[in-house]
Design a protein around this nucleic acid. Structure first.
Lengths: 365, 365
DNA sequence: CTGTTAGCGCGTTCAT
DNA sequence: ATGAACGCGCTAACAG
């Protein structure tokens, strides 16, 4: 029923090994036979049997990309960037990687499940993107599984999340990993610090903050940058930072909307609100508007990530730009072994402040 | 190095066949042996070898989801809905499907490439989402490949795109397919018709339209609905519909921005602008604002899809709601054979008008 | 450069 | 209810 290597071989008058060789292009083959084989492949509409070749070669051409939420453009951009590097040579089956994105929904269990499924497929590489869940049981289970995978030949790249904790469990975020797992971390702390500093410099002192889910690394890092800036430039504001912080249940619009309302309840006189990311910021803006507050005249708003819509919002959103496409592409190349890993296998990706119309000096009282 | 079925068998003191049977749960196995085997599996951290089992069984647990643009929430929502149905039973390897999304970037070639890659993997099912490219050479090549795939046992579901043209090439969009390929089509014509009718009823007569890429089915269908409404309610407006239509190069924000500027150039007195979708509509809004026009006082704007951000835009966007999550979930169930296909294998998904703040009667002249 | 020969790890008859 | 044995389609030595 289905065409096999042997069929092609027979048709081309060569052995199946030869066919395999021209298809994979790993060994020298005479030009004449090569064209003959390719013609046979074409005539028979032959398609390699992936499982069979994966079994024999003990490795497949599957590359997994784990994301927390496919419906979030943040991940869409990163994923598409990773995939853009997998184009492949175009030859009949040569090097063509099948880059697939797996949606964990932010659930640690699904994350582990996907890892198992990818391991089962003998994936060539796995790229994990976005914030990690900071819960000891899960982090160690995850680190464990990733190290196993790495040991069994699957390349692992962490993009937009902190490095794995070292096996011995001492300290956090070691400067260098020792297991071949490459990390591209975003400078969330730095970016957040710059954003808050910008607000403080404008003269704001009562700054609300709607964070992301409490257990995620990104949430913590951005909050740390924020608090550090407060501590440095406005110690008095730091005192009530706790009261002006609301933890959102997700990185979504409604977290921003609800969070902003809660902040307004706690401190009707706040002059600025920072959000966990741009999507949350949009929710914040909606809530402020619904309360009759103008942006930025009455309240300034700041986001994070600089997703495409941030510049188009009205007013255009002041935010922190993360080079998502660039980072994703680099992660893709690292996953394919096309780029040499950074020293110590950990690199930090910059996060630049983008000042736009949603922030302005606070109104004189 | 890696643990195999045989290892588990040895540890449990049974044959590998038995282990296989408990893992797949297809044959009766004594309770005692079952637990013994499961314990061995656990102790050895055994993970099924996907390629090997796919080779032997001639089918894999991979399900492909093809999307035109992962970075577009439209597809993200559909994809995540499809995946949400693949949870699986949770048993050690039973039924767990690996749902993966493949980003075609709207390119026909990449679409075909992914189909080949999935065929190579002996995918259990493939879900194609979003608009199709309407170009004869490609549509026949695609239809061909899909029918081959379907014939070789891969379930095919079309979600948000029109049914395949019949093999004989006569007529378009047949009421019923005959190859087991299931289609969930969106009522783009109807939705668009209702949206334009809404504008006409408000009193608008000079309505600009920024479409999506010319060669896509969705573009054509939405435009047809628009024109039909014009023809029915305002034949005089239909006359200049051509002049008031601008074809965008993509379904993105800049297409909307540039398109709106072009429309303003052609007809400075237009009172409403319709966009190919919500993302494009956002670009339209940005352009109008940059030209000093207020929405909806000076110009009304309408979108399509009703993505989450549409309700949050300011002003909130009047648009046509597509039940993306619902449709995606259904597509997922169909792909798994969990739901019986609609009669004729083709179903049309409703598209409801959502009237919000971005549309209002035109200003009196 | 090319053919021959073993497996890769698992599902699946066919016996028992 | 369980075991033995074969073959899925391909790659990777090893000849030649």
């Amino acid at each position: 029923m289905t065409v096999t290597l042997a069929d092609v071989a027979a048709r081309a008058g060569v052995s199946s090994a030869t066919v395999s060789r021209v298809l994979n292009g790993n060994y020298p083959v005479a030009d004449g036979t090569r064209t003959r084989v390719l013609r046979a492949v074409d005539e028979l509409q032959y398609v390699v049997n992936g499982p069979a070749s994966a079994l024999a070669a003990a490795t497949s051409d599957l590359v997994g990309i784990l994301v927390n939420d496919v419906a979030d453009p943040f991940f869409g951009i990163v994923a598409s960037a990773v995939q853009s590097e997998m184009g492949g040579e175009g030859a009949t089956g040569t090097g063509q990687k099948l880059a697939v994105v797996c949606n964990t929904g932010g659930s640690p269990e699904r994350e582990l499940t996907y890892l198992t499924l990818l391991r089962r497929q003998r994936a060539a590489a796995v790229v994990l993107t976005g914030s990690a869940v900071e819960e000891t049981a899960h982090s160690t289970a995850l680190a464990d599984r990733l190290r196993h995978l790495a040991a069994s030949g699957t390349r692992i790249v962490l993009c937009g999340r902190p490095p794995l904790a070292p096996r011995d469990g001492t300290g956090e975020e070691p400067a260098l990993a020792q297991d071949g797992i490459v990390t591209l971390a975003f400078d969330n702390r730095g970016g957040s610090h710059r954003l808050t500093a910008h607000l403080l410099t404008l003269g704001h002192r009562r700054i609300g903050y709607v964070t992301g889910p409490a257990e995620r690394s990104t949430t913590r890092h951005r909050l740390e940058g924020h608090r550090r800036a407060l501590g440095e430039q406005a110690p008095e504001a730091l005192a009530e930072a706790e009261r002006l912080t609301v933890h959102g249940g997700a990185y979504d619009r409604s977290a921003g909307y609800d969070g902003a309302l809660e902040l307004l309840r706690r401190a009707p006189d706040l002059t600025a609100v920072l959000a966990a990311n741009d999507t949350v910021a949009l929710g914040v803006c909606a809530a402020l508007r619904d309360r009759g507050l103008r942006i930025p005249e009455d309240v300034s708003v700041g986001g994070f990530d600089d997703l495409p819509f941030a510049a188009d919002a009205s007013p255009a959103l002041t935010t922190v730009r993360l080079p998502l496409h660039e980072a994703g592409a680099r992660a893709g190349r690292l996953a394919l072994g096309l780029e040499t890993p950074p020293p110590g296998d950990v690199a930090t990706v910059r996060a630049d402040l983008m000042v736009r119309a949603s922030t302005a000096p606070p109104a004189p009282r």
